[in-house]
Lab assay of single mutants.
Amino acid sequence: THFTSQQLQELEATFQRNHYPDMSTREEIAVWTNLTEARVRVWFKNRRAKWR
């Protein structure tokens, strides 16, 4: 999946605040970024792996 810079900005900003967002937070992010909750969940999983 290719993310727009706007989507990445929103995802990264949320990641800085919370590395493990809950389901409702992921659903909110999905609405803001026009992505599915599953895409958001996978992005956070991959981002945490990169962060370690």
Results as ranks from 00 to 15, higher is better:
residue 1 T to F: 14
residue 1 T to S: 09
residue 1 T to M: 12
residue 1 T to L: 12
residue 1 T to I: 10
residue 1 T to C: 12
residue 2 H to L: 11
residue 2 H to Q: 10
residue 2 H to S: 14
residue 2 H to C: 12
residue 2 H to I: 10
residue 2 H to W: 12
residue 3 F to V: 06
residue 3 F to D: 02
residue 3 F to L: 15
residue 3 F to Q: 02
residue 3 F to K: 03
residue 3 F to W: 07
residue 4 T to H: 04
residue 4 T to R: 03
residue 4 T to D: 05
residue 4 T to W: 05
residue 4 T to L: 05
residue 4 T to V: 02
residue 4 T to K: 03
residue 4 T to P: 02
residue 4 T to S: 09
residue 5 S to A: 12
residue 5 S to F: 13
residue 5 S to M: 13
residue 5 S to K: 14
residue 5 S to V: 14
residue 6 Q to M: 10
residue 6 Q to T: 10
residue 6 Q to A: 13
residue 6 Q to P: 05
residue 6 Q to S: 10
residue 6 Q to N: 08
residue 6 Q to F: 14
residue 6 Q to R: 11
residue 7 Q to L: 06
residue 7 Q to I: 08
residue 7 Q to S: 04
residue 8 L to K: 07
residue 8 L to F: 05
residue 8 L to V: 09
residue 8 L to S: 06
residue 8 L to C: 07
residue 9 Q to K: 13
residue 9 Q to G: 07
residue 9 Q to V: 11
residue 9 Q to F: 12
residue 9 Q to S: 11
residue 9 Q to P: 02
residue 9 Q to W: 14
residue 9 Q to I: 11
residue 9 Q to A: 14
residue 10 E to V: 15
residue 10 E to H: 15
residue 10 E to R: 15
residue 10 E to M: 15
residue 10 E to I: 15
residue 10 E to F: 15
residue 10 E to W: 15
residue 10 E to K: 15
residue 10 E to T: 15
residue 11 L to W: 02
residue 11 L to P: 01
residue 11 L to R: 00
residue 11 L to G: 00
residue 11 L to Q: 00
residue 11 L to I: 02
residue 11 L to H: 01
residue 12 E to C: 06
residue 12 E to P: 00
residue 12 E to A: 00
residue 12 E to H: 03
residue 12 E to S: 02
residue 12 E to Q: 02
residue 13 A to S: 11
residue 13 A to I: 10
residue 13 A to M: 12
residue 13 A to G: 06
residue 13 A to R: 14
residue 13 A to V: 08
residue 13 A to Y: 10
residue 14 T to V: 15
residue 14 T to G: 11
residue 14 T to C: 12
residue 15 F to V: 01
residue 15 F to S: 01
residue 15 F to I: 01
residue 15 F to P: 01
residue 15 F to A: 03
residue 15 F to L: 01
residue 16 Q to A: 10
residue 16 Q to H: 12
residue 16 Q to M: 09
residue 16 Q to K: 10
residue 17 R to K: 13
residue 17 R to P: 01
residue 17 R to M: 12
residue 17 R to W: 12
residue 17 R to H: 08
residue 17 R to L: 12
residue 17 R to V: 11
residue 17 R to F: 09
residue 18 N to V: 07
residue 18 N to G: 05
residue 18 N to I: 10
residue 18 N to K: 04
residue 18 N to Q: 06
residue 19 H to A: 06
residue 19 H to K: 14
residue 19 H to C: 08
residue 19 H to E: 03
residue 20 Y to T: 05
residue 20 Y to V: 04
residue 20 Y to C: 08
residue 20 Y to P: 01
residue 20 Y to G: 01
residue 20 Y to F: 11
residue 20 Y to E: 03
residue 20 Y to H: 06
residue 21 P to T: 02
residue 21 P to I: 03
residue 21 P to D: 02
residue 21 P to M: 04
residue 22 D to A: 08
residue 22 D to K: 06
residue 22 D to T: 12
residue 22 D to F: 02
residue 22 D to N: 09
residue 22 D to G: 06
residue 22 D to R: 05
residue 22 D to E: 03
residue 22 D to Y: 04
residue 23 M to V: 09
residue 23 M to W: 11
residue 23 M to K: 15
residue 23 M to N: 06
residue 23 M to F: 14
residue 23 M to E: 09
residue 24 S to C: 09
residue 24 S to R: 14
residue 24 S to Q: 14
residue 24 S to M: 10
residue 24 S to V: 10
residue 24 S to T: 11
residue 24 S to H: 13
residue 25 T to M: 12
residue 25 T to N: 05
residue 26 R to T: 05
residue 26 R to M: 10
residue 26 R to D: 02
residue 26 R to N: 02
residue 26 R to E: 01
residue 27 E to N: 11
residue 27 E to Y: 11
residue 27 E to K: 15
residue 27 E to M: 15
residue 27 E to R: 13
residue 27 E to F: 14
residue 28 E to Q: 15
residue 28 E to P: 00
residue 28 E to V: 09
residue 28 E to F: 10
residue 28 E to R: 13
residue 28 E to T: 11
residue 28 E to S: 09
residue 29 I to Q: 01
residue 29 I to P: 00
residue 30 A to N: 01
residue 30 A to R: 02
residue 30 A to E: 03
residue 30 A to Q: 02
residue 30 A to V: 02
residue 31 V to N: 12
residue 31 V to L: 14
residue 31 V to P: 00
residue 31 V to Y: 14
residue 31 V to F: 13
residue 31 V to G: 10
residue 31 V to E: 12
residue 32 W to S: 15
residue 32 W to A: 15
residue 32 W to R: 15
residue 32 W to P: 01
residue 33 T to N: 07
residue 33 T to Y: 08
residue 33 T to E: 02
residue 33 T to M: 14
residue 33 T to D: 01
residue 33 T to F: 14
residue 34 N to W: 04
residue 34 N to G: 15
residue 34 N to V: 05
residue 34 N to P: 01
residue 34 N to C: 07
residue 34 N to I: 05
residue 34 N to H: 10
residue 35 L to E: 03
residue 35 L to N: 05
residue 35 L to H: 04
residue 35 L to Q: 07
residue 35 L to I: 06
residue 35 L to V: 07
residue 35 L to R: 03
residue 35 L to T: 13
residue 35 L to F: 03
residue 35 L to S: 13
residue 36 T to H: 04
residue 36 T to A: 06
residue 36 T to N: 05
residue 36 T to W: 03
residue 36 T to C: 06
residue 36 T to Q: 04
residue 36 T to L: 04
residue 37 E to I: 05
residue 37 E to R: 02
residue 37 E to S: 04
residue 37 E to Q: 06
residue 37 E to G: 03
residue 37 E to K: 03
residue 37 E to D: 03
residue 37 E to Y: 03
residue 38 A to S: 12
residue 38 A to C: 09
residue 38 A to Q: 12
residue 38 A to L: 14
residue 38 A to G: 08
residue 38 A to E: 13
residue 38 A to P: 10
residue 38 A to W: 12
residue 39 R to T: 13
residue 39 R to S: 13
residue 39 R to F: 10
residue 39 R to V: 14
residue 39 R to W: 09
residue 39 R to G: 10
residue 39 R to N: 11
residue 39 R to M: 14
residue 39 R to I: 15
residue 40 V to H: 00
residue 40 V to S: 00
residue 40 V to T: 01
residue 41 R to N: 07
residue 41 R to F: 06
residue 41 R to W: 06
residue 41 R to I: 04
residue 41 R to D: 07
residue 42 V to L: 12
residue 42 V to G: 08
residue 42 V to Q: 15
residue 42 V to Y: 10
residue 42 V to N: 12
residue 42 V to M: 13
residue 42 V to K: 15
residue 42 V to S: 13
residue 43 W to A: 00
residue 43 W to S: 00
residue 43 W to N: 00
residue 43 W to L: 00
residue 43 W to R: 01
residue 43 W to H: 00
residue 43 W to P: 00
residue 43 W to E: 05
residue 44 F to C: 03
residue 44 F to D: 00
residue 44 F to R: 00
residue 44 F to A: 00
residue 44 F to K: 00
residue 44 F to N: 00
residue 44 F to M: 04
residue 45 K to W: 09
residue 45 K to E: 07
residue 45 K to N: 06
residue 45 K to G: 04
residue 45 K to L: 08
residue 45 K to I: 13
residue 45 K to D: 06
residue 45 K to V: 10
residue 45 K to H: 10
residue 46 N to V: 15
residue 46 N to R: 15
residue 46 N to F: 11
residue 46 N to A: 13
residue 46 N to M: 12
residue 46 N to K: 14
residue 46 N to P: 00
residue 47 R to K: 05
residue 47 R to L: 05
residue 47 R to W: 06
residue 47 R to V: 04
residue 47 R to C: 05
residue 47 R to S: 02
residue 48 R to S: 02
residue 48 R to P: 01
residue 48 R to M: 06
residue 48 R to N: 04
residue 48 R to D: 02
residue 48 R to I: 06
residue 49 A to G: 06
residue 49 A to N: 08
residue 49 A to L: 08
residue 49 A to W: 07
residue 49 A to D: 09
residue 49 A to Y: 08
residue 49 A to I: 11
residue 49 A to P: 01
residue 49 A to R: 15
residue 50 K to R: 14
residue 50 K to N: 08
residue 50 K to E: 15
residue 50 K to I: 14
residue 50 K to D: 09
residue 50 K to V: 13
residue 51 W to P: 05
residue 51 W to G: 06
residue 51 W to I: 06
residue 51 W to L: 09
residue 51 W to V: 06
residue 52 R to M: 12
residue 52 R to W: 11
residue 52 R to Y: 15
residue 52 R to N: 11
residue 52 R to A: 11
